[in-house]
């Protein structure tokens, strides 16, 4: 399991109901069921991954964040997880709203577009930056809604979400040392991880 998945799992209380959007090969689902006793279910867009997950006995359905969340009832889950996908969905704000409607908590990770390497590359070359994290050219990238950690915080404020936990991690999922300063995290963090809930709960 990737280290950032381990960090996500650490945010989840045992025995809770979890929906993992973009569950991939089902690693996190399997871990949450086996070690945390969670009722963990997945949504995955890649049919081969869905078939593979179900063939491993994991409850996964074919679907995606933009179109399938609206069909769940309010607070059907304790946690709704979206890993490294927010930047690739059609309507990120709506997806977040749905996540915090159907779940009591949302756990969101995304690659930080504010990282210093990206800033520097754009400044020096004048072209769309390409790095290990952002590695597809602009005309091919599925990442249609990149944002920085500060952008995401602004959106949370506008939407009335409470940030219960946040951390910056590097690409391998190792927790970065920028835990106090959002500005430093926004400059040096490759991936961001947030635990949110709606205000008033």
């Amino acid at each position: 399991m990737r280290l950032d998945q381990r960090l996500i799992a650490d945010m989840i209380r045992p025995g809770t109901r979890v929906l993992d959007i973009g569950s991939g090969d089902g690693t996190l689902l399997d871990y949450l069921f086996r070690t945390r006793g969670c009722d963990a279910r997945g949504i995955e867009i890649d049919m081969r991954e869905v078939t593979r997950s179900v063939a491993h006995g994991l409850p996964v359905m074919h679907g995606d964040a933009d179109h399938d969340l609206a069909h769940y009832p309010d607070e059907a889950f304790d946690y709704v997880v979206l890993q490294r996908t927010l930047q690739a969905v059609e309507r990120p704000r709506e997806v977040l709203r749905q996540m915090l409607r159907i779940g009591r908590h949302a756990i969101v990770s995304f690659p930080n577009f504010g990282h210093w390497q990206l800033r520097l590359k754009l400044l020096t070359s004048g072209r769309m930056p390409m790095t290990a994290v952002w590695h597809t050219p602009w005309y091919q990238t599925p990442n249609i809604h990149p944002c920085t950690i500060l952008d995401f915080l602004m959106l949370c404020r506008e939407e009335g979400y409470v940030v219960e936990q946040w951390m910056a991690v590097d690409e391998d999922g190792e927790r970065a040392p920028w835990r106090r300063s959002i500005r430093l995290a926004n400059l040096f963090g490759e991936q961001a991880l947030f635990l949110l809930r709606r205000r008033g709960r």
Partner: peptide
């Protein structure tokens, strides 16, 4: 599948 989602049922769905 979506009807079962509305009922918050435990659903796998494979095509």
């Amino acid at each position: 599948a979506r009807a079962l989602n509305r009922a918050a049922a435990n659903v796998s769905f494979v095509e």
